[in-house]
């Protein structure tokens, strides 16, 4: 997750004493108002992050049969090194890259098209349709995953018969996972895009129409460019969500052996911490994952500002 700090207004030198007192009072009020947020930020984000950084530098070293218990040893960046050189971690990154490659375009195009259709007025029963597409987002991810897992199950689900391929086999399981995520998020992003489309000035759309632009042309050349910042925000969130994909593959893992215990980087972290009992390596992997997320979202943001300023 990346937090964008608002730029601080330059502090002006106050020559007289009286306004300085007022400023101090104001500062105090600001502090009180910000306190609930600060307490939560410190206790649920900053402290755990710092603790993870601390943990990532240590390992529990055993000896002999191991029954004399572990000894906590400082190993500098040893955990990072073992994560970076771990083939399972590479495979996990490869999986989420492929997952993102399928999920991001299909989800974004799907929700954009649906939003444009809703906005264009060609759709009757608009409320019903938007609710129908949005409902999967309201279904908890685990429940959604289970529903799909049953649909995917080769002997009791219909999908194998419909498509002729086993959706849980090792070649098809990745698209199957992407499909669950896409199903879940299309409605959510459709609502975001639809809301952004509501804010497109009517005059521009009418002007385009007066110039002879049809529905497609208006959508492509007017509406999409206007809501481009919203689309980029959605891309950033989806990129981060894809990198951190966890629940869908975790649920399917109970139904097939083709989802490995380290299928995605988040599952790698989970496996390291809670199956292997190696907290140091788990912390290092999660720090690396956070860094990758931050870099990727920075790249997407940079790309989007460049595009919008053109």
């Amino acid at each position: 997750m990346s937090v964008l700090a608002p730029e601080r207004a330059p502090v002006l030198d106050e020559p007289s004493a009286a306004p300085a007192v007022r400023t101090r009072k104001k500062d105090f009020a600001g502090l009180v108002l910000a306190a609930p947020f600060l307490v939560l930020l410190v206790s649920t984000v900053l402290v755990p992050v710092l603790y993870a950084l601390y943990l990532s530098l240590f390992t529990e070293r055993l000896q002999g049969l191991g029954f004399s218990g572990p000894e906590n040893v400082f190993i500098w960046l040893g955990n990072y090194l073992s994560v970076i050189t771990d083939k399972a971690f590479h495979a996990g990154l490869g999986n989420v890259a492929l997952f993102a490659f399928i999920h991001i375009p299909s989800m974004l195009i799907g929700s954009l098209v649906l939003a444009l259709l809703l906005d264009s007025g060609v759709v009757r029963l608009r409320q019903m349709w938007s609710l129908a597409v949005f409902v999967p987002y309201a279904v908890p991810v685990v429940i959604g995953g289970l529903i799909w897992a049953y649909l995917y199950s080769p002997t009791i689900g219909p999908i194998k018969n419909l498509l002729g391929i086993d959706p849980l086999s090792d070649s098809a399981v990745l698209p199957s996972i992407a499909n669950i995520a896409t199903w879940q998020w299309v409605g959510y992003n459709m609502i975001i895009f639809y809301t952004a489309l509501q804010a497109v000035p009517k005059e521009i759309v009418e002007a385009a129409r007066a110039d002879g632009a049809g529905g497609f042309r208006t959508a492509w050349s007017i509406k999409i460019p206007v809501i481009r910042p919203t689309i980029f925000v959605a891309v950033v969130f989806t990129v981060i969500g894809s990198l951190q994909v966890f629940t869908e593959p975790m649920v399917l893992r109970g139904f097939t052996g083709t989802v490995t215990s380290t299928w995605s980087p988040s599952m790698y972290v989970y496996e390291a911490a809670f199956v292997a009992g190696d907290n140091g390596r788990a912390a290092a992997a999660s720090v690396l994952l956070a860094v990758i997320c931050a870099v990727l979202s920075a790249v997407v943001m940079r790309f989007s500002t460049r595009r919008s300023s053109r």
Binding site: S169, G257, T262
Partner: peptide
């Protein structure tokens, strides 16, 4: 179970 995944 990870290693047996591709057996089938």
């Amino acid at each position: 179970s990870d290693s047996f995944g591709p057996v089938r």
